[in-house]
């Protein structure tokens, strides 16, 4: 920032033009496939080369395709349940990670970190092996188990980062005023964590909704979540409907993440206003 003030915007740009060039190229690279997907999803032709007229044909087809709609419903159901379960369990894990009997807290923290670094393919393949060995029928519930076990680690990490910055005195003040330990947690700590928990929940939703690898290994035969439905469509060649589905998923996840960002900004804004008035 200081260089900007010293040298002026124009001069800064002259010295950094090559950084802008690389950034422009990277952004172009990032967007080319998205533009391609969007173009094909709106192309009246099925071909990849022939661009016909602008048409919502593939979206129409998508929204009248009962298999796709079922898939969308299953994906949303799993994502909602994953968000609810992983925020509940993950928040409790974060609290315990901070305060529990140290060996238990360290073991929990270690498992959470391990979960974040072990490649998803390894865990998902292992789950597949375990389920088939125990003769558990792969279904909605095995997918949910896989997703919760993934999202819970992310939730725990996010909530814990907020938890360590909380003022511990408020909680002891609540206890001095007669609240039980659980009461103080419920009345003081959880409300202070609420925006963080909400953000973590929305991220858990997106994580689950978009997940391919864990879903792939834990899903059985029968109705499939959307990423698997798209996978099987893509395996059989040109399918503009899959492009339309991709755009629908983009809109859904972008909406959820925008909500998450809005929560963060709103809380920051409120906090700043409160500090300004105090």
């Amino acid at each position: 920032m200081s260089t900007m003030r010293l040298g002026g915007r124009r001069e800064t740009f002259d010295r950094t033009w090559w950084l802008w060039a690389i950034t422009g190229a990277v952004l172009a690279l990032m967007f080319i496939p998205v533009v391609v997907v969007m173009l094909y999803s709106l192309n009246s032709e099925k071909s990849l080369i022939v661009l016909g007229s602008l048409s919502t044909r593939w979206y129409d087809k998508l929204f009248h395709d009962s298999a796709m709609l079922t898939s969308l419903r299953i994906s949303v159901e799993i994502a909602v349940l994953t968000a609810l379960l992983s925020t509940t369990f993950g928040t409790l894990l974060a609290i315990g990670w901070q305060r529990a009997w140290p060996p238990a807290a360290n073991a929990a923290g270690g498992s959470i970190l391990l979960r974040l670094v072990v490649p998803e393919t390894a865990v998902a393949a292992s789950l597949f092996l375990l389920f088939t060995q125990l003769q558990v029928v792969l279904s909605f519930w095995t997918i949910l188990a896989g997703h919760v076990a993934l999202a819970i680690a992310f939730v725990a990490v996010i909530v814990r980062s907020q938890l360590v910055s909380l003022n511990a005195e408020i909680e002891s003040a609540a206890q001095d005023l007669g609240a039980s330990r659980v009461g103080a947690l419920w009345l003081v700590v959880i409300p202070a964590l609420r925006p963080t928990i909400a953000t973590a929940g929305l991220l858990a939703f997106v994580l689950s909704f978009d997940d391919f690898v864990t879903t792939y290994f834990t899903a059985g035969v029968g109705a499939q979540p959307l990423p698997l439905q798209i996978y099987s469509m893509l395996r059989f060649g040109v399918t503009p409907e899959a492009n339309a589905a991709g755009i629908v998923m983009l809109v859904l996840t972008a909406t959820v993440l925008t909500l998450a960002a809005a929560v963060v900004l709103l809380v920051k804004h409120r906090r700043r206003r409160r500090e300004a008035t105090a």
């Binding site: 990032m30 496939p33 040109v238 996840t253 972008a254």
Partner: peptide, 18 residues
């Protein structure tokens, strides 16, 4: 940078394929 990344992982790969 993050936005294109919200397109389904498989659809993005498929876009490169096409």
């Amino acid at each position: 940078v993050v936005l294109p990344w919200l397109v389904d992982y498989l659809v993005r790969i498929y876009a490169w394929q096409s």
